[in-house]
Design a protein around this nucleic acid. Structure first.
Lengths: 162, 162
DNA sequence: GTAACTGCAAACACTTTGCAAAGGA
DNA sequence: TCCTTTGCAAAGTGTTTGCAGTTAC
């Protein structure tokens, strides 16, 4: 485990501890294990993936606990929830990331992050116009990947029949 | 029923007929009834609302048929599907509307439409940058409504405890 | 007439809940 | 010790599917 990752994990753990204390919630090993697992790799994940990942590492938690803990992590702002597809919520780490949006591949479902400051201008303007105090936004672009002359996707390297 | 609405309904029906014919699908009364119901009122709706609405009008259709028909309407481009919340897909008419995005009220869940041309610039730029041919996007703003001095929401007129 | 469509109910997938047992504070 | 949290399994919720009967063509 590299140093930067260790630092992030430490900080995130501290923040979570503070949060639990303030809420009068218990600091259980399960909760920390889930937090640690989430911050062990950088990418989007869904509940089941996380659950199975932990099983594979021989850390026994129930799905219910995963859901429960994710709620706490969402509330504490350490994790962000997305709803890209139909019925599979996706999550991602929130700490150490700047605001970003998502490009979702129509072919393989892969999620790529991007950033465009113009969105926050839209936020501000529409908040004014519509009488809302904007809390957050979600911008998802959906599209087909460009492929090279052999039909290889320029993004995921898979063969794509377009 | 006003004239404009009648015109839209006629046109939409024609488009749907063309689509069904091209796909070799049958033109069943159920399908037209569902299309008609959807275009009878301007707003977002979910499957169950639509289903119950039709029941109330004494038009008997099964949920399965509603789902099936919505798929066809989506494919034909006459209806658009959104996933604002957790697990309740919302739909809206697509014909006669220009591209727009959505502002969702954190308090009452009400959906307001808005339009900002800057989004399409983001689409174009990110498509270039990430090697995608953007098909569509979805931008949702979430926020709390501004209230007047009496705590009345400026948007929905309900009392809001902020 | 016949293949596609409908209605119904059962199956599904993801998420939440109820309850007894475990374990932080 | 006490009350929150956990694990499990059962219940929920929105959606899809299988199948027998119906119907558009």
């Amino acid at each position: 485990m590299d140093k930067a990752l260790a630092l992030v994990k430490g900080e995130v753990k501290r923040l979570f501890t503070d949060f639990l204390e303030k809420k009068g919630q218990r600091r259980t090993p399960e909760r920390y294990a889930i937090l640690d697992e989430i911050y062990s790799k950088k990418s989007h994940f869904d509940v089941d993936t996380l659950f199975i990942q932990m099983k594979n590492r021989n850390y026994q938690v129930s799905r219910a606990t995963v859901y429960n803990t994710l709620d706490l992590l969402l509330e504490s702002g350490l994790v962000i929830k997305h709803q890209f597809g139909q019925n599979l919520a996706q999550f991602e780490q929130a700490f150490g990331y700047k605001q970003h949006d998502h490009m979702i591949c129509n072919v393989c479902g892969k999620v790529t992050e991007f950033c465009d400051p113009r969105i926050s201008q839209t936020e501000i303007m529409m908040g004014e116009l519509l009488n809302f105090e904007i809390q957050h936004h979600s911008l998802n672009l959906f599209g087909n990947p460009k492929v090279d002359e052999n039909g290889i996707c320029l993004n995921c390297d898979n063969v794509v029949s377009t």
